[in-house]
Amino acid sequence: MSTASVARSARLGPLISIASVAAFVLLWYEAARLGWASSLILPAPGEVLDTALQMLNDGYRHVPLWQHVAISLGRALAAFAAALVVGIPLGLAMGLSPILSSILDPFVQFLRPLPKLALIPLVIVWLGIGESSKIFLIFVSTLFSVIVGAAAAAGSVKVGRLRLARAFGATRRQQLWYFVLPSALPEIFTSVRLAFGVGWTTLIAAEMVAADSGMGWMVINASSYMRTDIVMLGILLLGVTGYLLDLAVVGLQRAVVPWAGRE
């Protein structure tokens, strides 16, 4: 492809995306209108919209809709922050120190793929049924992806550069600050993005633990009464919020590491 045609498709990109979403909604609308599936199995877009409008007025189960979104977002962000604070230094340290990596790697590799639902009974015993257990569940599912990403990023720092830095007498702190971090950061951002995605999916599991608010709880509770319209609405909210969160991380990445991908 020529440079001009690449630029043209880049401009067309958003338009194509909008058209594809519109086509999907139209298909959904038609499927419901033509009765391909009952409203129990596939609520019509209009029904979901009605439910959304009614909830904007009355809330869901005595809690305003925005508060459900805010509570879930608060839980996730608290967990993400903790995962970054713990995960990035630990991952970098593992990436730079083969001994530390050998010590911790078995635990990281064991815990990372573990289905987090399996931890619920233990988390209740350890942390109870308050906010801490919900945040902890999201934290553990995010943490290990952050660690693995940061370790890989630190490991990918070009050895030649570090040797050069040492030859010029850079201290360990200077090595870390001027050489390791700048080349590791873009990769760390990418892994953080993926880790947030993983963490966000744990929201439902986290809000299965004695919650009475939040988008995940909304979906679970509504499914107990076969309110598929609310389930759909909850899923849409979860998806859109997750999408916006991802956009925020991408924006942050552009601002913090503008040199990413330009080496």
Binding site: I120, P121, V125, I129, G130, M208, V209, A210, D212
Partner: peptide
Amino acid sequence: RQVQLKPGDLLAAWKRGDI
């Protein structure tokens, strides 16, 4: 304070004194 819990999770919360 009303707490939604699955039956299987009740005992743990009870033993901890959360409910």
